[in-house]
């Protein structure tokens, strides 16, 4: 069935966005506008690739568990370092968040392309891409009975563990944000850090933790893209503009990860819908690829006109926090 195939691809397309937007929501809830997310996802991807590449090259016989664990740890480490760098610059040194974020994006893409290129050179192949099919196969292991359940199995059960992890993380994040003390404190930090500080909440600690955890989650989106979506094939710049799409999704989801789950599938679908419309030329395809952004802009207009306070970004988003002189 074509529509089941479309839905399955839309979800696969949406999962990196879901990782990215959940990570960015956690970060933004602490008042940090991390525009470095595209770079961080890129780093998350290439770090995993480096880990997988080294393991594939050096292991005599691949252990399925290690084949997944090593790229995963590498990816987490890479994006965590990026998150730490961003936090250090914006929280400790109070550098401008927009400039820092954009710099990290540029840096992350450059970092990824450099190591991507280096690995290609190591393989000595003519094709400018790295093929990690073996690792990818371990990553893409899905439930064995998915194929027997028809369209339901194809749409909902054919995915890999990382895809379900993304949904679980989003749900857990939504619960933490709205139902727990930690979530309340985090939201207070992003809304009004002076008030949070006066209430005895460690503003700096919350900002650091939220940004680093958010970066790690976003980085997993990069890893999912390479290992699952691209079947273990890394090619430079292949990740495209998915990072920016994840940031757009944050606005679309009005800073709520549970809405982001559906938003990511919608964005994923809009992103690939051109493949399912017959007779489109190249320019038409590009027009269709614009859809997620157009939807975000329309949505922004819509929520700005409604002026609902709960649908607004955290009040202190993008601003550094200085404790008042005492």
């Amino acid at each position: 069935m074509m529509w089941a195939g479309f839905l399955q691809r839309a979800i696969m397309q949406g999962i990196p966005l879901l990782f990215g937007s959940t990570g960015e929501i956690i970060t933004e809830k602490s008042g940090n506008l991390n525009l470095g997310i595209p770079g961080i996802m890129y780093v998350g991807g290439i770090s995993g690739v480096i880990g997988a590449f080294l393991y594939e090259q050096n292991a005599a016989a691949m252990n399925p568990f290690l084949a997944v664990l090593i790229p995963l740890l590498c990816s987490v480490t890479g994006s965590l370092l990026m998150g730490l760098l961003y936090s250090f610059l914006t929280v400790t040194l109070r550098a401008n968040q927009n400039v820092t974020g954009l710099a990290l994006t540029t840096f992350g893409v450059g970092f990824g392309n450099f190591f991507g290129g280096s690995l290609v050179k190591l393989t000595g192949s003519d094709i400018p891409s790295i093929n990690l099919t073996a690792t990818s196969n371990y990553f893409r292991t899905s439930l064995p009975f998915a194929g027997k359940l028809g369209w339901f199995g194809q749409v909902f059960l054919s995915h890999s563990f990382l895809a379900y992890t993304a949904v679980i993380i989003a749900v857990v994040t939504a619960v933490i944000l709205s139902r727990t003390r930690v979530g309340l404190h985090l939201r207070a930090v992003g809304e009004n850090p002076a008030t949070a500080d006066a209430a005895g909440i460690n503003v700096g600690k919350y900002k650091y933790l939220a940004t680093c955890i958010g970066s790690v989650i976003a980085g997993l989106g990069g890893l999912y893209y390479v290992m699952d979506y691209a079947n273990g094939v890394w090619s430079n710049d292949g990740f495209g503009d998915r990072g920016w799409l994840a940031i757009a999704l944050v606005i679309f989801a009005v800073w709520r990860p549970n809405i982001s789950i559906f938003g990511s599938i919608l964005f994923g679908g809009l992103y690939i819908v051109h493949n399912y419309i017959p007779g489109l030329d190249v320019s038409g395809q590009e027009l269709f690829k614009m859809l997620p952004y157009a939807v975000t802009i329309l949505f922004l207009v819509f929520i700005s006109m409604r002026r609902k306070r709960e649908a607004q970004p955290p009040a202190h988003l993008g601003l550094p926090y200085f404790r008042e002189e005492r």
Binding site: R181, L184, H185, R187, A188, E191, N192, T195, A196, A199, I201, R309, E310, Q312, A315
Partner: peptide, 12 residues
């Protein structure tokens, strides 16, 4: 915090 309820502010 403006977008919080009275209770949320009180227990913050």
């Amino acid at each position: 915090v403006d977008v919080f309820s009275a209770t949320e502010n009180i227990v913050l």
